[in-house]
């Protein structure tokens, strides 16, 4: 099979319409931190926003983001495109995303391997997909369409899931590998999601990560989870982004950096949002691990 996408990762130079995120840690941008960020300009690698929260006409969100964008690289993370939906993509939504990307010129745009809309309704959650051929074809078509519409390479994020489908014929890593091979999109590796899905489906998260096409990873996400139990009393982890990053996820992150080398890393916190200082401390720790992986690589090279 040949790669048909015009968005095949290039081996020379950088993509035409974007720079890369710096190889540092960044934070999810939250309105409650706007004032402090603008007043103190904390030393962070980048900020990330949810695209849908900025698809509004004007007001304080755009006012703050314009000023923050002047000082920091930006990642725009979509949560509503519903790339896994069995219906067609919402072209009006793609148009709105294109306008937002044009306005803020982010270094990265990412979406999820999931669906969140059906029959004109929006569920505000990332819903799971069966990993089989017809789903693969549909997801690849939607990613091709998105990359063409937005005129850029997108990153696709691996999901946290609570269920599996009897219809699945491929494992998740194989499914993602095939998407990336066919569409030329990049991978946003959510290490917390990898850990959660590993626990929830009783699989080894390290083996999962090792099986992914790591050369395509351009960004890592880290977040916290909550613990629950399934009907048999087995652990069921919920991807809440509402707690500090767990020690086990930090370990898996270090394992990932070992394989991957230094990679831009986002600290995600969307619930129980603490003070900016608490999140900056997590970002500092991530940067310490990034530096460590840099040193390790240098030693190996020497």
């Amino acid at each position: 099979m040949t790669m048909q996408s015009p968005f095949t990762p290039s081996t020379s130079g950088t993509p035409a319409c974007s720079d890369h995120l710096p190889v540092r840690a960044g934070l999810g941008l939250k309105p409650q931190h706007f004032t402090e960020i603008l007043a103190t300009c904390p030393d962070l690698g980048f900020f990330e926003i949810h695209a849908e929260n900025y698809l509004v006409a004007g007001g304080p969100f755009h006012h703050a983001l314009r000023r923050i964008r002047d000082h920091y690289p930006l990642s725009i993370h979509g949560v509503g495109l519903s790339i896994g939906a069995d219906g067609p993509l919402d072209v009006a939504h793609l148009d709105r995303l294109a306008a937002l990307l044009d306005r803020y010129q982010p270094q990265s745009f990412s979406e999820h391997l999931a669906w969140s809309t059906h029959g004109g309704l929006f569920f505000n959650d990332l819903l799971p997909l069966p990993y089989e051929l017809s789903t693969l074809n549909r997801v690849c078509d939607h990613i091709d369409q998105t990359q063409e519409h937005l005129q850029r390479r997108i990153l696709l994020e691996n999901p946290a899931t609570y269920l599996e489908f009897a219809a699945s014929t491929l494992d998740e890593a194989t499914f993602i590998t095939e998407i990336i091979r066919r569409t030329g999109c990049g991978l946003l590796l959510d290490v917390n999601n990898a850990y959660i899905s590993g626990v929830n489906h009783h699989r080894d998260p390290q083996a999962y990560i090792a099986a992914l096409p790591l050369a395509a990873v351009e960004e890592i996400h880290l977040a916290g989870f909550a613990e629950d139990l399934d009907a048999a009393g087995a652990p069921l982890l919920i991807d809440t982004h509402g707690a500090p990053i767990a020690a086990t996820v930090w370990e898996l992150y270090a394992f990932t950096l070992d394989r991957l080398g230094p990679t831009p890393t986002l600290i995600e916190r969307d619930n129980n949002i603490p003070s900016l200082a608490v999140l900056i401390a997590e970002a500092r720790y991530a940067e310490e691990l990034i530096r460590q992986s840099q040193r390790d690589q240098t030693e190996v090279a020497a």
Partner: peptide, 29 residues
Amino acid sequence: DGLTTWNGSDPARRFAVYRNNVIVSLIDA
């Protein structure tokens, strides 16, 4: 139908996580 769990536990309990995410996040909104 068609949902599975590694340990054969009732998938309804796991499906309830999605159901809860949708309803609670929209109530929170």
